[in-house]
Structure formats: structure tokens, C-alpha cells
Design a protein around this nucleic acid. Structure first.
Lengths: 341, 341
DNA sequence: TTGTACGCGTTATCAT
DNA sequence: ATGATAACGCGTACAA
């Protein structure tokens, strides 16, 4: 059944010319008789000739493939970034292999190993929340594979980076809560190993300090992950304090939404009794009730820019002028889960 | 910088033996002196030899790559399926290339073309909502590439299929609405070109008919897509009817959530004035207020099973005993957006 | 037990 | 204007 593909040699034989001539004809080599070109092209079309990329890969020692490593893909955040990446890479001749680390350092190592085995030409990576050693990425770089880090920073790693100013986003959110009259602002913080979580926490702390507000340890609770369920217990813990907060700044929208859920169960009115602000502005956040105030970040653009930077590296062989570090500004979006100023 | 990789020939030269011997040693060929094997393996390790998969690909005429075509990836539905696929394929030696058709027939064709160019060994596909001609998939099959269709059926295409009994899911949902006392049940239906939407609509119709309820044309409205925004206008249309429905069965959760949103804006009480039921049971659906009644489907399993079936084909060369057709049963999940029975 | 020679499909280089 | 040849890295049939 599996018809064997038509090769350049088949065409050559049929036309009584050399394979190299066929190759040249197909590539519109300038020094070829028009006749020959036409004959070759005609036969190629007739025989449905398709170049064998596998052979090209071997010859050029490159796979024309880009590896993308993300912790997961079920959140809107990463899936939108990937969509951005796809939309850029899709117009090039590269293919992308998406790999999920499941927030595991070990799996991330395995993935890097696999990508290096198949000789990807470049890698886009957002590290797992467990990762704080980046030797595996350095190894990639040393073997000549450019690496672009996005969203989650890899401190100490020298590479291109496309990040978001999480600090600023958090600062804006908390300062707004302060201005709206909240006095007891809590923070549901992400896994502290993550640069993003760290910066959001710092933005929270600095906004409080800048406004001469006390920092209360019991108002800072870490969530173990980024799904709805990860926010349930931590929120309960906060709301069952003797002196519960009157505002919660959550490290992302899922957590914020589960905080809203718990708050309502415990008969807190939102935003009268408690304001809630998230981070991400994922699409469903404007459809929950009350609609969620949150910090928007340009997910799609993050993906596009990261891909563009990598592509640029791949195409302009050695225009190495140091690494780029791009930082997007997030924006506060006020909706109904928080008091008006 | 780019060190050239160590090859089998390098090892051979260093050891004064033939490359083929090295090759055999590395593969534990039975008829080789233990000494030789050990020497080769030792040196291979020392030199950090890594087989060149690109060469192997050419030799074996296969890319060890599987193509996955999905309409989009930002919904929980497809991203969870992909996670399931990944978790199965990840344990094999195959790589997966995920391609987004953006619900476009043209893009889907382009993708298929690309996948065939890079000689993927198999394809998992869920067609775009525009696709109703499957010649491009047949072409894949004819060139020896096994195709497994998942979730969205391709009527007329003979291939392995992993589907969901959408009819049953819809039937359950609507019958439940009827039992709970709803008399005027509307349906926000998906793009009618999709098998899933079609079957859900049919389930809706049959449930009504089975219960001797009238079918009212103005209660059936099609949504143009599956995002929140796609549900807004159609819902308004329904709720502004002179005789608005007292229940809405939506073709998916996003649409159901935007229906809830509109209903609340128009001061319908949920579920007192209107019951709303979705389809998918995506994670956030239990966190909206009121929590959404919906039809659960085993997304992760759909991905895993599809991948397993494809893998099976790839590994057992020609055990062709016809195509498999697996149909998962969805389950109604009652929450608070609908009246109790 | 190991070596030789060839082929996978293509292109670049050197000839003609 | 075109042909011949080598090379990319590996595996394997055949020879020794």
C-alpha cells in the first residue's frame, strides 16, 4: 500500500539527466536551459514529487524543529502564549514540538534531553515551579541551541528573555485596593520558587510599605499551585482568622475565583465586605459574578515576541549582539469584585 | 562554538575497528566479543556519544513524529485532551507536533500538507468546524499514514475514531430539565457543521419529543463559536422573546456561562426563573455562581485512548483488523444553575 | 567475531 | 549547461 515516494533520482532517470540537474532545476538555478527546467518541473508535478525533508535534515544537520517547554497547557495563560508562538512559527518553515513539564524539574530535564537528542534548532522555555537550577538549559546553549525564556525568569541564566513586569502589576493592584479604602489586604501568593510569584509578592509588600500600611504575616498565604482547588484551603485560612482581611490580592485568576467562591460560602459580601483582585485576566474572569478585577497581561504577545526573537536568532546566523530582555507592562482592570475608588 | 557531534565513526577510528562494529556493539549484537562491546561502550560514554536521530530518520524513512491537529488550544477541552495525548506519547519514542487549525478548513489543509511533507508517522485529528470534506485526511491514509479522529467525527471517513456520545449527554440534560418542571426549554446550539453540535441538537430534540413537549423553532439558536462572547447575542435574543424560555441547554460551558451572565443582567433569577445547563464540565464551571449544571465528558481519557490507538497502529505494523470506534459516555452533573427535581 | 560496501535523498563542489 | 562524486551518520547484507 505504502507507495514509495518519488525521488529526485526517479525524475532524473526518466528524463535521462543527472540527479543534480533535477535538483538545480527544481531550485531555479540561473544557469540552466529553460527547456530543462520546464521538463523537470512538469514531470515533478506529474509524478507528485515531494522533497524528502528527512534527507535535508541529515544533510543540513538541523531538524527544522523548535522545542517549546511549558509547565502545563490547560490554563488559559500558557495556551494563549502557545497560540501566539504557533501563529508566528506557523508562517516559517519550522515545526514546533510542545512539551509539558507538569511543573516537575525531573520531567523538564527529561524533556531537555529529548529535545537535544532530536536536535531541535532552538528552544522556548518557561521553567517548572520546581526548577531553580538551569544547568540543563546552559547545556543546550553550549551545544549551540539558542534558548529563549518566557514569562517565568531563570535567574542567573544568560539568554534572551521575554518577561512581564509582575512587580508593577502587583503594585498597581495593591495600591488601588489601598486607595479604595481597604485596610487589611491579604495576598494569596504563588509557589515562592517562581520569579513571577516572587515579584508579585514583592510588589504587594512594597505597595503596603509605600503607603505606610503594616505588613501582617498571617495575611500572606502561599498556594501550592495555580488551579481553582489550590485556592480553597488558603482562602479559608484567611477568612477564618479572628481578624479576617477586607481585601485579597490573589496571584492569579483561578485562585481569585476560588477565593470568591469561599468568601460567598462564608457569607462575605463582595466587594462590600471583601475586595478580591486576581492576576491574568483570563477570559472567564469577566463572566463570573461579580466580575473579577484583575491584572491583565499580554499573553498572546508574549508568545509572539518570544517566537520572533528565536526565529531571528535562527535566521541571522551569528548576529550575536548580546541577549535581548523584553519586559511587558501589565495593566490593572477594575471590575466589580473590588470597591470603587 | 558548535562542537561537532561525536559519531560512530569517530569511535571506530579511535578504537581501530570498523564503524559497523561500533554500531553493533552499541546495540548489544549477540555475536560480539564482550571486550569489544565494553571498550566501545566505555568510549562512547566517555566521548558523550549520542546517536544522530536525523540519520536514523532518513535510513528508516520515518520521522518518529506524530501530528496532532486541533481547532484551538485555549479551551480547557482541547488542552486537556492534548495533555492526555502527551502523557501517553511522552512515554514512547515519538514526538508530537501540535497544530492549530483555528477552526479554518484552509488552515487545516495547509497543516495536513505540512505534516505530510515532514513525513509524520501518524496523525491525531479533530477537524475544524468548517471542515466537511475529508479528502485531505484520506490522502494521508493513502500515503500510509494512520489517522485517528477524536471528539469531532468525520462522517464518511473510515478511520479509527474516539468519540463521545453527545446525543446521550444532551438527552440526559434535557430530560432532566423536563423532569425538574421546565416547560420552555431552549437550546444554544453549536455550529451545525460539527458532528458534536449536531448530535447534541438531536438529543435535545428527541428528549423533547419523547416527553411530548412541543419543539419551538425560536428556542433553537446557533452560536457562531465556543467562546464566552459567542453566547452573548444569542442569549439576548432568547431572553428578549415575548415568551422567553425557562431553561437553556447550552452546547458548552463557556456559552452557558455567558448565558448566565446575560440572564443575570436581565434580572432573571437562576434557577428560579431560568435553569441553565452546559456541556463539558470545565474546571471553572463549579466555581461560578450559581455553580453550573453541566454534562461531564472524559477529556483526558479521550486524549489518552486516541494516542494509545495510534501508537498501537504504529507499533504492530500490519495487524489491520479494521478500524476501532470507541465512544465514551458523558455524564450529567447537577449543580445549582438548574432546579432540583 | 569483525570488516567492507552500499544505500537512505539531497545538495555542493568540482569537472566537463 | 550539465554530469559525476562526495558527503551527511547510520545500519545491514554479505564477505571474510
Amino acid at each position: 500500500m505504502k507507495k514509495t515516494r518519488v525521488t529526485i533520482t526517479d525524475i532524473a532517470r526518466e528524463l535521462n539527466i543527472a540527479p543534480s540537474t533535477v535538483s538545480r532545476a527544481l531550485k531555479d538555478h540561473p544557469a540552466l536551459k529553460r527547456e530543462t527546467k520546464q521538463a523537470v518541473k512538469a514531470l515533478a508535478k506529474k509524478l507528485d514529487y515531494r522533497p524528502n525533508l528527512l534527507a535535508l535534515n541529515l544533510l543540513q544537520k538541523k531538524s527544522n524543529t523548535i522545542g517549546v517547554i511549558v509547565p502545563e497547557i490547560t490554563s488559559h495563560f500558557f495556551s494563549a502564549i502557545i497560540t501566539g508562538i504557533q501563529d508566528v512559527i506557523g508562517t516559517s518553515d519550522y515545526n514546533i514540538i510542545i512539551c509539558l513539564s507538569n511543573e516537575s524539574y525531573d520531567e523538564e530535564m527529561t524533556i531537555v534531553d529529548k529535545l537535544s537528542k532530536i536536535q531541535v534548532d532552538g528552544v522556548l522555555v518557561s521553567p517548572s515551579s520546581e526548577t531553580n537550577n538551569f544547568d540543563h538549559l546552559v547545556r543546550l546553549q553550549k551545544s549551540g541551541i539558542p534558548v529563549v525564556v518566557f514569562d517565568r525568569d531563570c535567574p542567573g541564566l544568560e539568554s534572551d528573555k521575554v518577561l512581564v513586569d509582575d512587580y508593577s502589576g502587583a503594585f498597581q493592584a495593591v495600591e488601588y485596593l489601598i486607595r479604595s479604602g481597604c485596610k487589611k489586604i491579604a495576598h494569596l501568593s504563588g509557589p515562592i520558587n517562581l520569579s513571577t510569584a516572587k515579584h508579585r509578592l514583592q510588589g504587594y509588600l512594597d505597595a503596603l510599605e509605600n503607603n505606610n500600611m503594616p505588613i501582617q504575616k498571617e495575611y500572606i498565604v502561599h498556594v501550592p499551585g495555580f488551579s481553582h482547588k489550590d485556592g480553597l484551603k488558603p482562602t479559608k485560612k484567611l477568612l477564618k482568622l479572628k481578624d479576617p482581611p477586607d481585601a485579597i490580592f490573589a496571584t492569579n485568576d483561578n485562585i481569585a475565583i476560588s477565593a470568591m467562591h469561599i468568601a460567598e460560602k462564608l457569607e462575605f459580601r463582595i466587594p462590600e465586605d471583601i475586595s478580591i483582585v486576581g492576576f491574568d485576566d483570563q477570559p472567564n474572569s469577566s463572566y463570573v459574578t461579580p466580575s473579577l478585577s484583575t491584572v491583565w497581561q499580554p499573553v498572546y504577545s508574549i508568545g509572539m515576541l518570544s517566537a520572533r526573537i528565536l526565529l531571528h536568532h535562527l535566521e541571522e546566523e551569528d548576529t550575536k549582539i548580546g541577549f535581548r530582555k523584553e519586559i511587558f507592562k501589565p495593566e490593572l482592570v477594575i471590575r466589580k469584585s473590588s470597591k470603587k475608588i
